[in-house]
Design a protein around this nucleic acid. Sequence first.
DNA 1: TCCCAGGCTCTCT
DNA 2: AGAGAGCATGGG
Length: 267
Amino acid sequence: MQIQTKDFSLSQTLECGQCFRWVRTADNAYVGTAFERSISIEQRGDTLFLSGCDDLERTDLEHYLGLDEPYEEYKRILSQDDTLRTAITFAPGIRIMKQPFWETLCSFIISQNNNIKRIMGIVERLCEGFGQAQCGCCRFPDAQSLSSLCADDLAPIRCGFRAKYIVDAAKLVSDGTVSEKALRELPLDEAREMLMKIKGVGPKVADCVLLFSLSRYDAFPQDVWIKRAMSELFPSGLPEYAKPIAGIAQQYIFHYARMSGIFSQKQ
DNA sequence: TCCCAGGCTCTCT
DNA sequence: AGAGAGCATGGG
């Protein structure tokens, strides 16, 4: 399968810290798990060459990668601000993906006080140890199957104190206390509160889930990088016109703050 | 050995 | 309500 893109970068999108199951190969392609299978994607110019997914609809892949959103318009709005324009210019090919809800929730619970490399390892062990093997990969274990575990059962994945959080999340999702449908429809504050019923889910993880899986672009995850970038670049907050798509601005700022070198290290 | 990692909970004030 | 220690684990 081939997909034509415009102003899109596969590497920027898959390596900007929003997903944890995609790995770059030696020949500059990416191999990851999505749609319950292993998929390989390589970008040459504006064309994506995909393998392992010829039976899927092209629109499903485009949706997953955020290619079905009007980024030309989003970037036009955000670029009214000089600093945002600088951040966007630094990595203009980033798209916010639309990843499965439970996988995203679980992954960002694991992400707290952790680094991306180790997050990826833990997620992989979770899938290998508890997910169903299928099509040469391991599916992400569903909430229901994890809900009957206790924290000690998760010892093999070596996620430390986060094990009890994963189990609690699995229980609340599988019993409907936290529902994806509700999270899509509720006002942002109420959606965030619903997610924060889960032990180990605070405002940052909640916003990551709303942004990276449910396309709630008004969610604005604030981690250490964003807090520092905001205090220095936007001491009085984002401009009003950016707020409905603050999450999109967030990802450009996050990547810029980490990768540009303007902030050497934590102060 | 110490410090840090896309935070959160618990406790104390 | 705000500040700060502690939390599991592993890499630098």
